[in-house]
Design a protein around this nucleic acid. Structure first.
Lengths: 191, 191
DNA sequence: TCATTGATTTCAGTTTGTGCAATCAACGTC
DNA sequence: GACGTTGATTGCACAAACTGAAATCAATGA
């Protein structure tokens, strides 16, 4: 991790995101404000370096596992593999990062954007497997929903199970919720 | 719609979001930059006035329809009712607004945040019906996923069906995707 | 030694966004 | 008609985020 990222991480944890200035981060890293903006498009971006790595990892896993699995299962399996590789051992760091993000709306926005980009990348991989674009996007979104549900739980103090298991649980919950009941009723009010 | 919103809408459509300055918007509206920031927390917010209305409408519909329906069905029914009331007749405006947002990452971020807030509001309503927090959030998220899928399609040129129908379709698609196949496999790789 | 390449810096400038005090425009009341 | 209240608008001064362009510095290798 670069000096700038480390400095930013420290300062955000110490005094919050809004109260720390880019000049301050750069000073602590022994660099200049202009240099900061050479490396990161904006102040938020300094917290989101791992995102693209995670994205590459997931897509790699997804194209790796051959086309025998139903799409949503394939996505969740890829998420499990990527989580094992990148999240499981650094629970503490991931958690502190989420706390920083949770404390600031601007950072939450950026986090949502990164998730959306990841969703699109997964959808692209699914299209590469022959899924039609609409189903691909919906499946990718459902997978990311499973991921978010699992990670939310994983970062809670009471929770001690591995992320892999929580992903399975979340998938099961989604299936249960989706399966509940008929969908004929949606037409009936008019008839 | 206020003068500022109208002016902003015009200018964003004419020259894009980034190229138009707050000073410019205010000038066209016959007002001052300072006044703009009295009404809107930031430059983006001027495009998101209808959001809170939509949120109130959905939550109202959701608590209105009694507890007999399965949760996800109740959410989608509420989305249908709110869409009928607020979206259906202004397809053109909604569509142009989405085009503006689609052309700018910052605006997409804000849109995602608004969707997240709406998700939370729906989840709160579901908790009020007795759902446990985790299921409530997952159900609300699934509902919003249906909504986004339907609206994406609704704003495409080729599409002419009412949003209500597309919501039913999207719910059906999600159910199909979720239903596909076993979820036992997730444990098998280790054993 | 010298040229190239890439990272860093300096500088000057625009834009966003905020705090504060002043002003303006109704509007009802005496 | 004078007067005070209330809310919206404005002017001003300023912090902080971000950008473009040119200069400098530090390897690195021919």
């Amino acid at each position: 991790m670069g000096r700038l990222q480390a400095a930013a991480f420290e300062l955000f944890a110490e005094q919050g995101f809004e109260r720390t200035t880019v000049a301050e981060i750069s000073r602590r890293a022994g660099l200049t404000q202009r240099t900061f903006f050479n490396h990161f498009a904006d102040k938020r971006e300094v917290l989101f370096g791992l995102g693209s790595e995670f994205q590459r990892e997931i897509v790699r896993e997804l194209v790796a596992c051959a086309g025998t699995l139903p799409p949503l299962d394939a996505v969740v399996r890829a998420l499990q593999a990527a989580s094992d590789a990148m999240f499981e051992e650094r629970r503490a760091v991931v958690k502190r990062r989420y706390e920083i993000i949770a404390a600031n709306p601007e950072l939450q926005e950026r986090e949502l954007r990164k998730q959306a980009e990841l969703t699109d990348a997964i959808a692209a991989a699914l299209r590469g497997r022959g899924l039609d674009p609409e189903t691909a996007l919906l499946t990718a979104s459902a997978g990311m929903l499973v991921q978010q549900t699992a990670v939310r739980r994983w970062t809670q103090p009471a929770e001690s199970r591995p992320l892999r298991e929580l992903l399975s649980d979340a998938l099961h919950s989604l299936r249960t919720i989706a399966a509940h009941a008929t969908d004929q009723w949606v037409a009936s009010p008019e008839t």
